[in-house]
Amino acid sequence: MANIRLQNVSVEFPIFNANGRSITSRILEVASGGRLDKDPSGRVLVHALQNINFEINEGERVGLLGHNGAGKSTLLRVLSRVYHPQKGVAKMDGDVSSLIDLGLGINPEATGRENVFIRAALLGLSKSEVAARFDEIVAFSDLGEFIEMPVRTYSSGMQLRLAFAVSTVIQPEILLMDEWLSVGDENFKHKAEARLSNLVNSAKILVIASHDRELIEKTCTRVIWLEHGTVRMDADVKKVCSSYFSQ
């Protein structure tokens, strides 16, 4: 059973190159919503998440709402096991993958083929798994012969198609997204939408951060509203959306 459980999770960033509370940090607090503080040795700490508690069970589609800096991305990083919380316990049962920065690890000087293998390896696929699915990836990206060319020769649409095709080969139990992926040109759009929906539907848990009311209402079964690194509201879509978007 895929499951996510966060108990009293707090994440703090030490900021090593800031000297105490300056005017800028006051401004930051107002503008970003993250809380700044000092640790015992006088270092500046950003409290990105404070005392987060929730459980997400299999089948749930959870939307994350909140202003910029409310802690959505940090929370996604905790869920993807990148950030280990300093306090509390974050337990994720099931394999987690995120569809956040599609361009990550794409090297413009390397060929499309090389990039497919590198990106897929970073996503946790073995060489033989990639090799087995290579033709499918190429076919999906519509790159044809261009797959043997350096990525710098691609149009931006082609680059996006390549990145999209590789990034979506995974089939995670827990899928994390930061906004719905936009996938460029008209012809590719339908195909990509179908693939993305398929990926989302086959994931046992989806957590998606978004500012888009329509998307959340369409996709999610539950919404968590983050504010200043804490959970302001955690309830069904209708309730949270109506209070969040009416403020």
Partner: peptide
């Protein structure tokens, strides 16, 4: 950095 902050490698 980019990989570390995004993927659990």
């Amino acid at each position: 950095e980019a990989i570390i902050k995004q993927l659990n490698v």
